[in-house]
Nucleic acid binder design. Sequence first.
RNA 1: GGGAAAGUAGCUCAGUAGGUAGAGCACCGCCCUUUUAAGGCGAUGGUCGCCGGUUCGAAUCCGGCCUCUCUCACCA
Length: 496
Amino acid sequence: MEDLGKLIQTRIDKIKTIREMGINPFPYNYTVTDFSRDIIDNFDEYSRNNVEPKTVSVAGRIMAVRLMGKAAFCSIHDKKGNIQLYVAQKNIGDSLYEMFKHLDIGDIIGVGGIVKKTQVGEITVYADSLTLLTKNIRPLPIVKEKDGEVFDAFSDKELRYRNRHLDLLVTHGVKETFEKRIKIIKTVKRILDGKDFLEVETPVLLPIYGGANAAPFTTHHNSLDMMLYLRISLEPYLKRLIVGGIDRVYEIGKCFRNEGMDRTHNPEFTMLELYQAYADYNDMMTLTEELFETSCIEIHGTTEIEFDGHKIDLKRPWRRLKMVDAIKEYAQIDVESLSDDEMKVLIKKKGGEIKGAFIRGLAINEIFELYVEEKMIQPVFITHQPLETTPLCKVDYEDERYLQRFELFINGHEYANAYSESNDPVFQRKTLYEQSLRRDVDAEVSPMDENFVQAIETGMPPTGGLGIGIDRMVMLLTGERSIRDVLLFPTMKPDK
RNA sequence: GGGAAAGUAGCUCAGUAGGUAGAGCACCGCCCUUUUAAGGCGAUGGUCGCCGGUUCGAAUCCGGCCUCUCUCACCA
C-alpha cells in the first residue's frame, strides 16, 4: 500500500489540508536577509558587541526534523550550508505550529527569529515566524551524519547522476566540486583576459569538421536539407580569427566526439583553446604553467596536491623533455636507431597497432604512449613529437623530422596540447590533403576543409596555439577520479 | 567491444545451498518544550531489474536482455 505513489499522495493531501488552513503552500516570494554560514560565523563577534540577540530572516529546505510535542528542532539547508531552527508552539502560535506539524523533509520554508545558542551550544535560529514557501511531495533520500561520519549516504552512482538535483542536496562535497570547477574556469579567464585575449564564441554546428582526429556526431538541418557536424575541436574557427586580425583569442566551450565513454571520456566535454599571434610553443608552455599553477593555488592555497596517491607539485617551471629523449630515459629505447621492423616488434609486444601503412613518426609516438606516458607523474612538457602526428604544426627548424609541439603530462595523462601553428599555406594544403587521403584506413581523420586552407592562404601570422581539456584539469584540481563527477549532467543512457 | 561485480521497500542494506521476504531511516498514528543518526510505543509498505526456461512451486537454479559501477581495449 505504501509505495512511492502513496507517499506522494499523502503529501498531496497535506497540500489540501494546508490550503484549508488558509495558507498558500506556494507563495510568490520571501525576503531573505541572512544565510546559514554567515549567521554561525558572525555569532561570536555579534554577541560581543550587542546585548540583544540578532534578528534574522532565513530560508531553506528542511533536511531534518526532531519533533518533541510542543516544540521541535529542525535543520534547514540554504545556499551556504545548514543551520538549526528551534520551532516552539508558544513562539509561533497554535495555528502555525499545527501547520508546521504537517511539513516534511524536503519542504522549503522561510523563518524569522533571533539567534541564540542552545544548551549544548549549537547556534540556532529561534523562530518567531514561519512561512511555508514550497511544499515537497517527492521524498528526499535521508542522509544522516554524526561526528563527521555519514550514514545511509545517497551512494548509488546511477541514481546520483540521473538525479543530480538530489545529489547536490544530500551528498556532501558535490556542490563544492562544482563551485571549484567554476572557480577554475574563472581563474583561467581572468588570466587570459588580463593578457588581452579576446573571448569568443564560434559555431558548434558545422558543415565540415576538423582540428583533431575524432569521429564526429552528425545531425541534419531540415530547411537547408543538409548534414551538419558537431565540432570536435575549436581550432579551425579560432585560427580564422587570428587571420582576421584578432591577435589573441580564446574560447572555452563544448566539443563533441562520437567515441567510447570511460572514466576520462564523455561524449561532450569542455575544451579551452587559445591562439596568440607572434608567439610560439615556448610562450604556450609559460602560459600553461601559469594557468595550472594559479588555478591550483586558487583552489588549494598551495601548488602541491595529491592525486591517485601521488604527490604532485604544480610549481613552475616544469620540466621540458623531447619525446625521443623521454623514451630513452624512461624506456631505455633509442628509437632513432631502430629499424622499422624493430619498432613494429616493440609496438606489437605492448599490444599497440599502426593503422594503415607503417609510418616511422607515428610509430615513435605509439612507442611513447605504450612505454612512457603512464610514467609521467610530475608535470612535464613532452616536446618535439614526430611531424607525422599532426598536419597543423610547424616543424622544428633544428630538426625537421620533429615538430614545435608539446603535450603536457601529469599523473600519466595528457592535459594540454600546443603547437607553433603551421602557417605555410602551401605546406598546409599539401599536408591536409595528404592526411585526408588516409580516411580510407583511418575513419577519424578529418576531411579536407577548403575554406580553412583559403584562410591560411590569406596569411596567418606566426602563432602559438594551446588546447586544454578543462574537465580533466578540474578532475586533477578537485581530486575526482571520474569525469562524471566533474560534469553536472554526464551523458547517460535512457533510464528504463 | 572484452572481463568482473551489482540491481530486493522512497533511501541505505540484510537474507534464503527453491516453499512468494527482513532491518534501520523516511512515511502514517500516539507520547514528548533543548534535540542533533533525538527517544519511546504501534501500524503500513515489496510483480526481490525485465523476459523466458526448469520445477508441484523461482526472489533464489538456468538462458537471454536492460541499466549502472569497476576494469581492459579504443580514444591526439
